[in-house]
Design a protein around this nucleic acid. Structure first.
Length: 590
RNA sequence: GGAGCUGUCGUCUAGUGGUUUAGGACACAUGCCUGUCACGCAUGAGAUCGCGGGUUCAAAUCCCGCCAGCUCCGCCA
């Protein structure tokens, strides 16, 4: 079918006879002379059809159109100097075609490959097979392959086993919603697609496999986002007889290996580490983007006895006054400052106060006349303010003040173009709380998952004040995106049961949902821990694209529909009957 | 569940109440062209203006509802 690839043809081949196969790109018909671009995964080469040299292929080429699949044979020929095309690698030569065969004709494609960047995404998804022919998608999917390949090689070299776990698994209603699969053999019963291989991974550790990994497809029936699909891929690993540091070290090795192998980039080891609390205080988020500065600073101490009512009230109620300093207020118009205040309100804060430091180090602000001289001097000193600085202040409940300024911080970085875009900035976030209070459900929920081991220094509070307990969990954050999370797991059945109890799962529920797991814990469970990396997100960042749909061959839309195949779709009554399912009428619902 | 943005030939778009027989570019078709590579030139075909209702003498344009896509909040143990 072919002796060579389109992309490898260059002047070294001049004079050689080659046979190439691929898709036709553009066609330039000059009447007595036709040029076709022939494309395969490797690249593009120009074909020439000259009736004066070879009549038959010329006649066939007359009828060839875009996206036809053809095979040609001919001689690689040097181009004359003035017809060299420097923009493609094969541009110094072309193929003078002696023989052409059309494998397959093609309808006029709905969009031109070179127009891809302008075409609406749903058109591209409907004709994904054409979209995937574009250079960008070819590169993204290839990048993905290279990442899984590097991952396997790395883990294999470190003594990990790749072990598959069931896709038809058990529903565990804690956490994300499950996708359910009815069982024909067991009417009225359901499998669930796994949200993650978590429990199977742990059980493999109980079984003595020591280290395992999996490129695991996971399923969660939750709403979609640019970085969330209902099915996605995790790099999942688990290790026996380890502490958090061991897992982190292995993972740093993995990232370093992947970036070296795939992008030929060195990443600096070890990664930075930041405690969850520090991250919240300084960056207002548990997934800080450290490619820029703008740290959040606490200035509560300056306003304990303030005349300013909002500050005083907030502090009286255990809130905080927090601030960010921006270099130059000239970057902001009045309108933009107003917009910042709006943004702050949108994120849940009562408001936002701005202060400009003018050339004479005077503080200009809507609240300046309420600021005492001590407070002014205190601010200048505490924040090392310089002329032309802009100070943004949020006073609110501690967590609201942090999170609001966290969002403002990201907003400012984008506006002021402070983000070092070519950097890959990894950071570990650790020392998470074990639990958090779910205001909506009025109950305690795990921050990570209920199999996470409590940190020994704070485990004493488990019975009295569980919200004070920290966990042995760690997240890995890349450029402000959470790309993975893991933990040291509980390996003691009594502790595990205690955690379930704190989470208010009753005995019966524990038995039904996790009975298999607590039983497994009773027969000799070693200390163990692991992590799962959101592979799609990692590749999205490596490819510098805005959505994981760009690195998944066949993704779903925001309403979880596949534009290519039109799934999900109805099934026949017979199919439903076989699995004992009755569809409720729309009216039957509330 | 909620908020915002978008929806006009195959594709990208112009059009904010009558100038519209909805304009352009690319793609497509036909013809001409032996050096193009975003080929060129000429001619042509191609649009239920997302769907439904309303206001108006008159709606792509204004209003209401719905649908679809995207972004975000909630949600994602």
């Amino acid at each position: 079918m072919r002796t060579n690839l389109c992309g490898e043809i260059n002047k070294e081949f001049a004079g050689k006879e080659v046979t190439l196969s691929g898709w036709v790109g553009r066609r330039r018909d000059h009447g007595k002379l036709i040029f076709l671009d022939l494309r395969d995964f490797s690249g593009v080469v120009q074909l020439v059809f000259n009736p004066g040299i070879n009549k038959n292929p010329y006649t066939t080429a007359k009828d060839v159109r875009s996206e036809y699949v053809i095979k040609i044979s001919g001689k690689v020929t040097n181009r004359s100097k003035d017809t060299i095309n420097p923009s493609i690698p094969s541009g110094e030569v072309e193929i003078v075609v002696k023989d052409i065969k059309i494998f397959s004709k093609a309808k006029t494609p709905p969009f031109l490959l070179e127009d891809r960047s302008k075409v609406e995404e749903n058109t591209r998804l409907k004709y994904r097979y054409i979209d995937l022919r574009t250079r960008q998608m070819q590169e993204n999917i290839r990048l993905r392959h290279n990442v899984t390949d590097a991952t396997r090689k790395y883990f294999n070299s470190k003594g990990f086993l790749e072990i598959e776990t069931p896709i038809m698994a058990k529903s565990t209603p804690e956490g994300a919603r499950d996708f359910l699969v009815p069982s024909r053999m067991n009417p009225g019963k359901f499998y669930a697609l796994p949200q993650s291989p978590q429990l199977f991974k742990q059980i493999l550790m109980f079984s003595g496999f020591d280290r395992c990994y999996q490129i695991a497809r996971c399923f969660r029936d939750e709403d979609l986002r640019a970085d969330r699909q209902p099915e996605f891929t995790q790099i999942d690993m688990e290790m026996t007889f380890v502490e958090a540091d061991d897992v982190m070290e292995i993972m740093e090795g993995l990232f370093s290996h992947i970036f070296k192998e795939v992008l030929n980039k060195e990443v600096k080891l070890p990664f930075k580490r930041i405690r969850w609390k520090d991250s919240m205080e300084t960056y207002g988020t548990d997934k800080p983007d450290l490619r820029f500065g703008l740290p959040i600073k606490d200035i509560s101490g300056l306003f304990r006895n303030s005349e300013i009512k909002i500050f005083k009230d907030v502090l009286k109620n255990n809130g905080a006054v927090k601030s960010i300093v921006v270099n130059d207020y000239l970057d902001f118009t009045r309108k933009e400052l107003g917009h910042l205040v709006e943004t702050a309100r949108k994120f849940g804060a009562g408001g936002l106060v701005w202060i400009k430091i003018d050339e004479n180090m005077n503080l200009q602000s809507p609240i300046s006349k309420f600021l005492s001289d001590t407070e002014k001097e205190g601010l200048i000193k505490a924040l090392s303010l310089k002329e032309k600085n802009l100070l943004l202040i949020v006073a609110d409940k501690f967590i609201t003040a942090c999170q609001t300024l966290g969002m403002i911080r990201k907003h400012l970085a984008r506006k002021l173009k402070l983000i070092r875009a070519d950097e890959f900035n990894f950071v570990w976030v650790y020392d998470f709380p074990l639990f958090e209070w779910d205001e909506k459900e009025k109950r305690i929920t795990p921050v990570h998952h209920p199999f996470t081991k409590p940190d020994e220094n704070t485990a004493g509070y488990l019975d009295s004040e569980p919200l004070k307990v920290n966990s042995m969990a760690y997240d890995i954050v890349l450029n402000g995106v959470e790309i993975g999370g893991g933990s040291i797991r509980i390996n003691d059945v009594n502790l595990q049961k205690k955690i379930f109890k704190i989470l208010k799962l009753d005995e019966k529920k524990i038995r039904e949902n996790f009975g298999f797991f607590t039983r497994a814990l009773e027969y000799g469970a070693p200390p163990h821990g692991g992590i799962a990396i959101g592979m799609d997100r990692l590749i999205m960042l490596m490819a510098k694209v805005k959505s994981i749909r760009e690195v998944i061959a066949f993704p779903k839309t925001q309403s979880a529909v596949c534009m290519l195949t039109d799934s999900p779709s109805s099934v026949t009554d017979e199919q439903l009957k076989e699995v004992s399912i009755d569809i409720m009428e729309e009216d039957g619902q509330e």
